[in-house]
Design a protein around this nucleic acid. Structure first.
Lengths: 136, 136
DNA sequence: AACACATTGCTATTGTAAATAGCATTTTTG
DNA sequence: CAAAAATGCTATTTACAATAGCAATGTGTT
C-alpha cells in the first residue's frame, strides 16, 4: 500500500524503533525499570566506578536528566553513589542492583533474540553492523 | 568500549533512530515542517482523498493527535479538508502543499541518500528489508 | 424499520521524556 | 595564579504521545 514510506530508510528506522521500544517497555516495566534505566544498569554492571557524566556521555543522556534517573535507581536500592574526589561520584551496583539487572538482562536477551528472529535470515547478520555504522 | 550495548540490536536501533531523527528534524525545520507533518504530506501526495483516520492508521498516529497536526497543516495552507459524506473529510494537498512537499521531498531524498551512504556497501541493501521486517 | 454497534472527528487532559538555562564547587590548563 | 572547563545539581519549559470522553454519522443484523 504505502510502499513509498517503507522505501525510505529513515522512515523505516523510525517505525521499527518505535515498534521495538513499544514492545520492550512493558517487558521492562514488569521489572519496574524503564528502558533508559536498564541501559544504565547494563553499563554500570559492565564498567565499575563510572561517574554520572561518563554514563551520560556513553548513553547520550544529558547531565540534567541523569539526576532524576540515578535518584530513582538509588532510592530503589539498585545503585549507590560513592565520592571519588570532592567533585565526582562513582556509580556502582548494589547487591539488589546486580540481582535486578541479572533477571532483567535475561528478559532483554530473550527479547533481542526474538527481535533478530523476525529478520529474514539473509538480512539478519547485516542489521547490527548497519545500525552501528549509522550512529557510532 | 561499551561494546555490550552496541551488540544489542534493540539498543542499536534506538540509538540509530534517535541520531537520524535528530539530524532530519532541523533539515525539515528549515522548511517549517516537523517529521510527522512531512510524513503526512508525503502520504497525502501519494494517495488522494484519504481521511484523517486512514492517515492515522497508516502512519500510526492516534486520531486525537491527528487533529492539531492537520490543523497546523491546514492553517499553513498546505492541505484542505473537504467533506466526503456527513461524517468524513477528505484530506488533499493545496497548490502550496504540493510545492512544499516537492521541495521538502528533495531535501528528504538527499538526506536518505546520505544516510545509506554511511552504511558499508556490504550491508547497505539489507538495511531496508531488515527494518521493514521488524515492524510491518 | 429498529436496534446495537462501530467509526469519525474532535475536545480536554494527562503523563512522560527531553531540552534549556543557570549555579556552586572543584579540577584542569595555559 | 588566573581563566577555562568539568561535575553534579535545581528549576523550568517544551514537545510528544497516551487516555478518556462526546456528539454525530454510518453499518450491520434481525
Amino acid at each position: 500500500m504505502t510502499d513509498l514510506l517503507a522505501q525510505l530508510p529513515g522512515y523505516a528506522l523510525r517505525r521499527a524503533a518505535n515498534a521495538v521500544m513499544g514492545e520492550l517497555a512493558p517487558i521492562l516495566a514488569g521489572h519496574d525499570l524503564k528502558i533508559a534505566e536498564a541501559a544504565v544498569l547494563l553499563l554500570v554492571r559492565e564498567q565499575a566506578n563510572l561517574t554520572s557524566s561518563q554514563i551520560g556521555k556513553t548513553l547520550d543522556i544529558q547531565r540534567a536528566n541523569m539526576v532524576p534517573l540515578l535518584n530513582r535507581l538509588e532510592s530503589a536500592g539498585l545503585i549507590h553513589r560513592e565520592p571519588i574526589d570532592k567533585k565526582s561520584l562513582a556509580i556502582n551496583l548494589t547487591k539488589d542492583g546486580e540481582a535486578k539487572i541479572c533477571e532483567a538482562g535475561a528478559a532483554i536477551d530473550t527479547f533481542e533474540k526474538n527481535l533478530l528472529a523476525r529478520v529474514p535470515a539473509e538480512h539478519r547478520d547485516h542489521l547490527l553492523p548497519a545500525l552501528n555504522a549509522i550512529w557510532r
